[in-house]
Design a protein around this nucleic acid. Structure first.
Length: 636
RNA sequence: GCUCCGGUAGCUCAGUGGUAGAGCGCUUCCUUGGUAAGGAAGAGGUCGAGGGUUCAAUUCCCUCCCGGAGCUCCA
C-alpha cells in the first residue's frame, strides 16, 4: 500500500501499483471521468502512469490551465496520426503545443494544399472517433533507433539524447512518436479543434536546413471557447492596420519608394503629429532637452560606437563623398553622445536628458517586413539620460512615472519585465549586480509587479521592458529602459565631479512609443481605427439636412476650426448616405443641422457608433465639450 | 534571405490562348433629402515589369519587382 496526499491534505491508502486514475476513482466517479492527467510531486504525468510510491497527487481536469497544453500537444499527435495515415511518406518533425494552439512539422516532397489540410482535418475526426489511448513506453536508444528507422528527423533528434537519459515514445493507434509527454488519456478527449494555416518552416529553425511544412491548429475543451478564439482571430483580422490604414487613408507604401518605407498620408500624419506634440509637452515637463541629429553620418562614428562591429548586418550601406564614407544611422545614441561631448560637463549639469524623434534606417530581410509594424525606416522617440550612479534610482522613478502617464493616456494596461545579465556581457559582474539591484529596488519600492527575464539583457546592460496589452488582449512591445555600460566607455564620456576629478557618467537609453510607425500601427489595431477625439484625423463632421442650410453649417465649421477643431462639412447626397459615410470613416462626432437647429442656434450631435441616440446642443456648448474632451485626451 | 500563395479599374474581386467584367468609389445631371447606401448617365485598365513560346499572351514558360502566410530576426 502507498499513501497518496491530496492537495487538501487528505491522505488515501491505495495499492502499490495505483495510477492517477485510481486516485481519481477513489475520490469519486465524476472525477475519474473528468481527470486528464495527474500532477505527481509537482510534475504533470499521464493519468495512467503508475505512481512512484507514496506521494502528493493533484488531479488535472479541464478546469486546470495546464490541461489546455496537454490537450493541444495531444492534438498535434492526432494531426500527425491523420497526416501519416493519408501521407505515409511524410517525415515527422516536431509537434509541440504553443501559446494559442499547436503545430506539427512534416517533411514532404510537395507542400500541402488547402485540400490536403481539409482532408487531414476530416481524418483527425476519424482518429478522434477511434478514441485511441495514448500509450507511453520507455525505450532505450537502440530500440528507439529501430522504431524510428524510417524517420530521419526523429533519428537526428534521438542522437542528441545522452545514453543514460530517459527516452519515451507515445503511441496512439497507428502512430508512434518520440515524445516526452504527457498526454491526455486518449484521442477521444480532443473534441474541439481547428486547423488554421500551413506554411514552410525550417527544420529546427535553421535556414540552412531542410524546409518542412508546418500546420498550425488550435484546440479547446469547450466548443464555446474554440468559437470565441476563432472569433478573436476574426476580430484581429478586422483590426488589421494595413486594411484600416488604407480604408482610412492613414498611410501607404509605394513600390517606387521601396519596401519597408512608410508614406504617412495626411490623416495618419495628424495622428502621429498629435502623439509627438503630446509627448514633447510631456518630456519637456519631465526635464528633457529636445535635440536634432543628422540622418547620415560619417562611418567613423559607428566605428567608435561599435555599431559597425556589432550591428553591421542591420545597417544600410555606405555612400562615399569626398573620400568619407557616410551611413544612414541605425540608432540615435552616438549623435546624442557627441552633443554631450560638445562641452565639458560638470556634475552640476547632471542629469542631462536628450530627446529626439530620431529617424533611423535598418536593413531588415524582406521576409520580415510587415505593414507599419516592421519596416526599414522608422522614427524612434529616443532619449538618452546621462547621470551619476547615485542619480540612477531617481531617474528610473521618473521614467516609470513617464511610462505610466503615457500608457494610461492611450488606454494600454501593461506588464513589466526585468532583463538581467546575459552569458556574453560587457562590464564587471559587480556593476551588473548593482545595476540590477537598483532596478529591482525601484520596482519593489513602487510595489510594481514584474517578471524577470533571466539573461535577457543586452550585452551592454540590463533593461526594463514594458509590454502593452491591447484591446483584444494581445501583447505589444512597449517602452524600454536600458542601462548602458558600453558606450560611455567607448566614447570616453566624462563629467567633472565635486571632487574636481573626471568621472564617467551612467547612460540610460529609453524609448516610450519605440517606433512611431509600429506604435501608430498598433494603435490603429488597438482602437480598431476609431481613434479617441484628440487623435482623430477628422473630429467633427457637420451635416446640413439640405443644401439650403449649407451656408449656416459652413459657418459653424469655420467657427469650430477657428477654435482648433478638425471639422469638415458634408453636404452632398442624402443625409442617410452621409451619416453612413461618417460612421464608416469613424469620425467621432456628427453634427446635424436642419431648420430647427439653424433657427435655435443648436446642433443635433450624434456620437460615432451610438446610432440614433443624439443630443441637441447649443453650438457653443458643443464646442466647449469638444475642447474639454480633447484637453482631457479622453479615451471614450 | 528561404518555402509556398498571390498581383486584372482608386478599392474589393470575377474572368479568358483571339487585347476585359462586376460592386463600391470618382465625374456630370436629376433629386433638396431629419439620422447607416435616392435615381440616371459617363469617365476610368500598356491585366505588376521585362523577356520567351505562339499566327496570336492578361492567360503558358523564365527572370525580376511588389504583397501575403510562415521560418529566422526585431523598434
Amino acid at each position: 500500500m502507498i499513501q497518496v496526499t491530496l492537495p487538501d491534505g487528505k491522505v488515501l491508502d491505495l495499492p502499490a501499483d495505483s495510477t492517477g486514475y485510481h486516485v481519481a476513482a477513489a475520490i469519486g466517479p465524476g472525477l475519474a471521468k473528468a481527470a486528464l492527467a495527474a500532477e505527481v510531486e509537482g510534475e504533470v504525468v499521464d493519468l495512467h502512469r503508475p505512481l512512484p510510491g507514496s506521494c502528493r497527487v493533484r488531479l488535472i481536469t479541464e478546469r486546470d490551465p495546464e490541461s489546455l497544453e496537454l490537450l493541444r500537444h495531444s492534438a498535434a499527435h492526432v494531426l500527425a496520426t491523420a497526416v501519416r495515415r493519408l501521407r505515409p511518406d511524410a517525415q515527422i518533425g516536431f509537434g509541440p503545443a504553443i501559446d494559442e494552439g499547436f503545430y506539427y512539422d512534416f517533411g514532404v516532397e510537395e507542400p500541402f494544399t488547402p485540400d490536403d489540410i481539409e482532408a487531414f482535418r476530416s481524418e483527425m475526426e476519424a482518429v478522434i472517433e477511434a478514441d485511441f489511448p495514448f500509450e507511453r513506453r520507455r525505450v532505450d536508444k537502440p530500440e528507439a533507433r529501430e522504431l524510428f528507422s524510417d524517420d530521419p528527423l526523429k533519428l537526428e533528434r534521438l542522437e542528441e539524447f545522452d545514453d543514460d537519459e530517459v527516452i519515451t515514445v507515445y503511441r496512439d493507434g497507428p502512430f508512434l512518436d518520440l515524445c516526452r509527454g504527457p498526454h491526455v488519456p486518449s484521442t477521444g478527449h480532443l473534441k474541439h479543434f481547428e486547423l488554421l494555416s500551413a506554411a514552410g518552416a525550417y527544420w529546427r529553425g535553421d535556414e540552412r536546413r531542410q524546409m518542412l511544412q508546418r500546420i498550425y491548429g488550435t484546440a479547446f475543451h469547450r466548443k464555446k471557447e474554440l468559437a470565441a478564439h476563432l472569433e478573436r482571430l476574426e476580430e484581429a483580422k478586422r483590426r488589421d492596420h494595413r486594411v484600416l490604414g488604407r480604408e482610412l487613408d492613414l498611410f501607404t507604401t509605394d513600390a517606387r519608394v521601396g519596401s519597408g518605407l512608410i508614406l504617412w498620408q495626411p490623416a495618419g500624419s495628424v495622428i502621429r503629429n498629435e502623439i509627438e506634440e503630446y509627448e514633447k509637452e510631456l518630456i519637456i515637463r519631465h526635464g528633457y532637452d529636445i535635440v536634432y541629429t543628422p540622418h547620415m553620418v560619417s562611418e567613423k562614428l559607428f566605428e567608435i560606437s561599435g555599431h559597425l562591429e556589432n550591428f553591421k548586418e542591420n545597417m544600410f550601406g555606405a555612400v562615399e563623398v569626398e573620400g568619407t564614407r557616410y551611413r544612414p544611422k541605425p540608432m540615435n545614441c552616438p549623435g546624442h553622445i557627441c552633443i554631450y561631448q560638445a562641452a565639458q560637463r560638470s556634475y552640476r549639469e547632471l542629469p542631462i536628458r536628450y530627446a529626439e524623434f530620431g529617424t533611423v534606417y535598418r536593413y531588415e530581410r524582406s521576409g520580415v517586413l510587415h505593414g507599419m509594424l516592421r519596416v526599414r525606416g522608422f522614427t524612434q522617440d529616443d532619449a538618452h539620460v546621462f547621470c551619476t550612479e547615485e542619480q540612477v534610482p531617481a531617474e528610473i522613478h521618473a521614467l516609470l512615472d513617464l511610462v505610466d502617464e503615457m500608457l494610461t493616456t492611450f488606454g494600454y494596461p501593461y506588464s513589466i519585465e526585468l532583463a538581467t545579465r546575459p552569458e556574453k556581457a560587457l562590464g564587471s559582474e559587480e556593476v551588473w549586480d548593482r545595476s540590477i539591484a537598483v532596478l529591482r529596488e525601484v520596482l519593489e519600492e513602487r510595489e510594481l509587479d514584474y517578471t524577470v527575464d533571466e539573461g535577457g539583457g543586452a550585452f551592454y546592460g540590463p533593461k526594463l521592458d514594458f509590454k502593452l496589452i491591447d484591446a483584444i488582449g494581445r501583447n505589444w512591445q512597449g517602452p524600454t529602459v536600458q542601462l548602458d555600460f558600453n558606450l560611455p566607455e567607448r566614447f570616453g564620456i566624462e563629467y567633472i565631479g565635486d571632487d574636481n576629478e573626471r568621472h564617467r557618467p551612467v547612460m540610460l537609453h529609453r524609448v516610450l512609443v519605440g517606433s512611431m510607425e509600429r506604435f501608430v500601427g498598433g494603435l490603429i489595431e488597438h482602437y480598431a481605427g476609431a481613434f479617441p477625439l484628440w487623435l482623430a484625423p477628422e473630429q467633427v463632421r457637420i451635416l446640413p439636412i439640405s443644401e439650403q442650410f449649407s451656408e449656416a453649417a459652413q459657418a459653424y465649421v469655420e467657427e469650430l476650426r477657428e477654435a482648433g477643431i478638425r471639422a469638415e462639412l458634408a453636404d452632398r447626397e442624402t443625409l442617410g448616405y452621409r451619416i453612413r459615410e461618417a460612421e464608416l470613416r469613424k469620425v467621432p462626432y456628427m453634427g446635424v443641422m436642419g431648420e430647427r437647429e439653424v433657427e435655435d442656434g443648436t446642433v443635433a450631435v450624434r456620437r460615432r457608433g451610438e446610432g440614433k441616440k443624439q443630443d441637441v446642443l447649443d453650438r457653443t456648448v458643443f464646442l466647449e465639450r469638444l475642447l474639454q474632451e480633447i484637453e482631457d485626451r479622453a479615451l471614450a
